[in-house]
C-alpha cells in the first residue's frame, strides 16, 4: 500500500497548497514511503469492533449562554495583517474579470 510515487507527492502537495521543487519531491517520495511503510505495521492489528477514539476526554457538547461577550477589537484583529485597508484583510483578486 505504501508505494509512494512522484504523482502521489504532486497530488498531496496540491491538496496541502504547497509548491515543491523537484529535489524536494524526490526526497519526499523516499521519506514518505519509508514512514508510511513503518505505519503499515498497523495492518497486522485486528481492530474489528473497536470504536475509534475521536476525543482525548470523554466530553459531551460544551455550551455557553448565548450572550454577547467582548471580542478582539478591529485594530487588534488587523494588527498582524500583511495587507489591510483598516477595515478588511486585503488579498489579491479572486474572481476573473472586472
Amino acid at each position: 500500500m505504501a508505494q509512494i510515487t512522484l504523482d502521489d507527492v504532486d497530488y498531496v502537495a496540491g491538496l496541502a497548497q504547497l509548491t515543491l521543487d523537484e529535489a524536494t519531491k524526490e526526497r519526499l517520495v523516499g521519506e514518505l514511503g519509508s514512514i508510511l511503510a513503518y505505519m503499515d505495521k498497523l495492518n497486522a492489528l485486528d481492530t474489528t469492533g473497536v470504536e475509534p477514539m475521536m476525543h482525548a476526554l470523554d466530553m459531551t457538547n460544551v455550551y455557553r449562554e448565548d450572550e454577547v461577550i467582548e471580542s478582539l477589537d478591529r485594530e487588534a484583529a488587523l494588527m498582524n495583517a500583511p495587507k489591510t485597508d483598516g477595515a478588511y484583510f486585503l488579498v489579491p483578486r479572486i474572481l476573473e474579470g472586472d
Binding site: 500500500m1 502521489d8 507527492v9 497530488y11 498531496v12 502537495a13 491538496l15 496541502a16 504547497l18 515543491l20 524536494t24 519526499l28 521519506e31 514518505l32 514512514i35 508510511l36 505505519m39 498497523l42 492489528l45 481492530t47 473497536v50 470504536e51 475509534p52 477514539m53 475521536m54
Partner: peptide, 30 residues
C-alpha cells in the same frame, strides 16, 4: 513542517482515510 503537512494530508486523503487515520484512531482506543 512541510513533511508532516504532507504526511497528514496523505493519511486524510480520499482512499487512505480509512486505512490510516480511522485505523489509527481505533488503535488509539486499544
Amino acid at each position: 513542517v512541510q513533511r508532516r503537512i504532507m504526511l497528514g494530508t496523505y493519511v486524510l486523503s480520499s482512499g487512505y482515510y480509512d486505512a490510516y487515520y480511522l485505523k489509527a484512531q481505533k488503535a488509539r482506543s486499544l
